[in-house]
Design a protein around this nucleic acid. Structure first.
Length: 492
RNA sequence: UCCCCGUUAGCUCAAUGGUAGAGCACUCGGCUGUUAACCGAGUUGUUGAUGGUUCGAGUCCAUCACGGGGAGCCA
């Protein structure tokens, strides 16, 4: 790494006395909120500031140089103005798109049109150069596919800067939503030995030697010799653990990574993604649905409030309907139909469905899209699905044909939330486990929850990345998570 | 995993089976308080890989790899 050089424009600065170990005016400390570019842009002319960050573009005139500097703290860049001769030419020569620099100077009212305030620099420290002939991020637009190939650098782009600021704010909003309501945050385990979570293929976790697997007499892999003494996997859901906690803390939520080993190659699937799973005791499906709606509206409103500049960018460059949609969703009531009603709507739609519709079939993408994009044009909650197409733990309705399941469908991305009221009756649950030929011995602790102090309870799961897609308008889920893991791809 | 489409310069893309190009980036020069700056000149290629057809393949065929869209699975 190259040693930084301070260029003080002829002035004698205290920091230049420190010898080779050049530092900034504030002594090499981290960026505090008050010294971020976000704060600097809110400052007033005459203030002396030091800005640190990465150069997005550079424009030169004969008598003046312009840099646009970003430190990630906000969407806007800080324009740095360097009058010719103030900074040594050899320092200027090291500054190009991608370089990391530190600029000290005075805030002035901008003489140009694009910004109201700018930094007139009298000292520049180059922390790290970026070779112009090889630095892959150009000033011009890049395709999302190309940026994905340089995931270690794409966060410096406008788009991904906005994406990950929104992701951070959204995560905070989610915690705040639940914490405000007294929900206990549960860290559900990442490694699990319950191969019965039933939400898809799982990644194995093992310390066994793959070249020399221990075998049982029957020729099966002998997991009793493995690290956990039995077959272990990465979690596909924290729901079962959340149910345990709900029957102790009443209202709980999980928020953590989840893993699916499905060979899904779509713009909506990841092998590793983040999920939020609230679970509420003394709650039925209506309460569940109400919370889901309140939840989505509140976190959307938070992002609208706190990420205005980023959202404006998405609306301008990514998807022109984003702002309108979000404001609409935050303000209006969700539609609610039962599965049976939804089927009736689809049957009467007069369409040639690729997958024919009749009571008992699961809703396909085309059906979900029709309901949410064409019939109602807003999020739709579908409840009370046929028992045959839903998971064993969902509570059986009195009609014995349907279960207390709900899916929240959103325009453009389909299912964004899936949830249910859980079967809290021990005998009914046991019957369903047996009817589906599930290994009941694996569910012993889940069944015991129904044996000791059982209570009605319900919950749902929200995929964080699906929500991110909805909020930002980004079309591919791989572009709303920092370093996506998908089949055949985990480079960074 | 299935179906369709694609892979050519650093990036985005052109190129009837017949000499591989443009814009941007980059380098140099000019001009200007510039805003994805502008003007001029210049550099840049194992056409994804391996076979095959052909006098001749970026182009046609086969296989593979990677990417995109759709579907399934789901969040």
């Amino acid at each position: 790494m190259r040693e930084g050089t301070r260029s003080a424009g002829g002035q004698d600065r205290a920091s230049s006395d420190r010898g080779a170990e050049a530092t900034c005016e504030c002594g090499g400390c981290m960026i505090r909120p008050e010294s971020s570019i976000k704060a600097i842009l809110a400052g007033s002319p005459g203030q002396r500031v030091t800005a640190r960050g990465w150069v997005k573009t550079r424009r030169d005139s004969k008598s003046v140089h312009f840099l646009q500097l970003s430190d990630g703290s906000c969407f806007a860049d800080l324009q740095i103005v360097i009058d010719d001769g103030v900074i040594p030419a050899e320092t200027l020569a090291r500054i190009s798109t991608g370089a990391c620099i530190e600029a000290s100077g005075t805030l002035v009212e901008s003489a140009g049109g694009g910004q109201s305030i700018e930094l007139k620099a009298d000292g520049i420290l180059v922390h790290g150069e970026a070779d112009t002939t090889t630095y892959p991020l150009q000033k011009k637009g890049h395709s999302m596919e190309f940026l994905r190939d340089i995931a270690h650098l794409r966060s410096r782009s406008n788009t991904f800067g906005a994406v990950f600021r929104v992701r951070s704010a959204l995560s905070f909003a989610i915690h705040q939503f639940f914490q405000k309501r007294g929900f206990v945050y549960l860290h559900a385990p990442i490694v699990t030995t319950s191969d019965c979570e039933g939400a898809g293929a799982m990644f194995g976790v093992s310390t066994l030697d793959l070249m020399n697997l221990p075998r049982t007499d029957e020729g099966e892999v002998d997991y009793s010799q493995d690290f956990f003494g039995k077959r272990a996997s990465l979690t596909v859901s924290g729901q079962l653990e959340a149910e345990c906690f709900a029957l102790a803390f009443s209202n709980v939520y999980t928020f953590g990574p989840t893993f699916r080993a499905e060979n899904s190659n779509t713009p909506r699937h990841l092998a590793e993604f983040w999920m939020i799973e609230p679970e509420m005791a003394f709650c039925d499906l209506d309460g569940n649905r109400a919370l889901a709606e309140e939840f989505l509206k509140e976190i959307i409103a938070f992002v609208l409030d706190h990420c205005a500049a980023d959202l404006e960018f998405f609306n301008k460059r990514i998807d022109g309907t984003v702002l309108e949609t979000l404001e609409h969703v935050a303000a209006s009531d969700f539609e609610h139909v039962t599965y049976t009603e939804a089927i009736r709507i689809l049957e009467r739609a007069g369409r040639d469905w690729e997958f024919p519709v009749h009571w008992g079939v699961d809703l396909q993408s085309e059906h979900e899209r029709f309901l949410t994009e064409e019939t109602f044009k807003k999020p739709v909650v579908v409840t009370d699905y046929p028992r045959e197409i839903k998971a064993f733990y969902m509570r059986l309705n009195d009609d014995e044909k349907t279960v207390r399941a709900m899916d929240v469908l959103a325009p453009r991305i389909g299912e964004i939330i899936g949830g249910s009221q859980r079967e809290e009756r021990h005998d009914v649950l046991l019957d369903k486990i047996r009817a589906q030929h599930l290994p009941e011995e694996h569910y012993w602790w889940y069944l015991e929850l129904r044996k000791y102090g059982s209570a009605p309870h319900a919950g749902f799961g929200l995929g964080l990345e699906r929500m991110m897609m909805y909020i930002t308008g980004m079309k591919n889920i791989r572009d709303v998570i920092p370093f996506p893991r998908t089949p055949g791809s985990a480079e960074f």
